[in-house]
Design a binder for these strands. Structure first.
Lengths: 100, 100
DNA sequence: CCTATATTTGACAATTATTGTCAAGTTAAT
DNA sequence: ATTAACTTGACAATAATTGTCAAATATAGG
């Protein structure tokens, strides 16, 4: 499966846009976008929304990929990650979230 | 399923310990522990380790519960949370993590 | 009821993590 | 060798998390 960064870079190049162009629309330095595309940094949630629009990427699939990477990042050093994911999934399904 | 906070409070009371006692061992103010037990704040990962020892709680199950709450917190405003969880699960299973 | 002790609450301070800029360094194509 | 695009790394700004403190509420005995 393609990473968020790969998706972004592919689409940007396919559209013939430069880092300079896209980063200007996002109002950030090209350095950050470069890092995002190479997976060295994470985009913010808001940047993902804008990028989907700017690059005309299917929003849902981009967000799903982005969120899953965020989750994996949280669990990267955890042996019990899979079990935690399963518990989270069950909880979310039964709508038992009581976060504030 | 019991929340992390509920597990902690139950065990502390069962052991007849006061917030004061446990929070001293954790080297934090009782206020924070109170909030953690009531789910108003999250414990740190390290505090979870210490709490499992201090309160003699099965470490694995406590960590799984704790991590799953952390994940759910990340996804609390996301419509696509479940899908993201599923993608994350698949990725973790195939050991394709390339986070740095 | 009085008062001791335990817990809770909320304002805000300290700390840590994330997000950003900038300038200099590569890379690649003339 | 120039030039344009991108990358790198040091560090600044901002935002989120974690903590303290003091006052407010319970809770339980005399």
């Amino acid at each position: 499966m393609k990473t968020t960064g790969e998706i972004l870079r592919e689409r940007r190049e396919k559209k013939g846009m430069l880092l300079r162009h896209v980063s200007a629309l996002l109002d950030i330095d090209t350095a950050i976008l470069s890092k995002i595309e190479r997976g060295e940094r994470k985009a913010t949630r808001e940047q993902i929304n804008r990028l989907a629009e700017i690059l005309e990427i299917d929003k849902e699939s981009l967000i799903i990929q982005y969120l899953s990477e965020k989750i994996l990042y949280e669990l990267k050093d955890e042996d019990l990650g899979i079990q935690a994911l399963k518990v989270a999934e069950k909880t979310i399904k039964y709508g038992v979230t009581k976060n504030k």
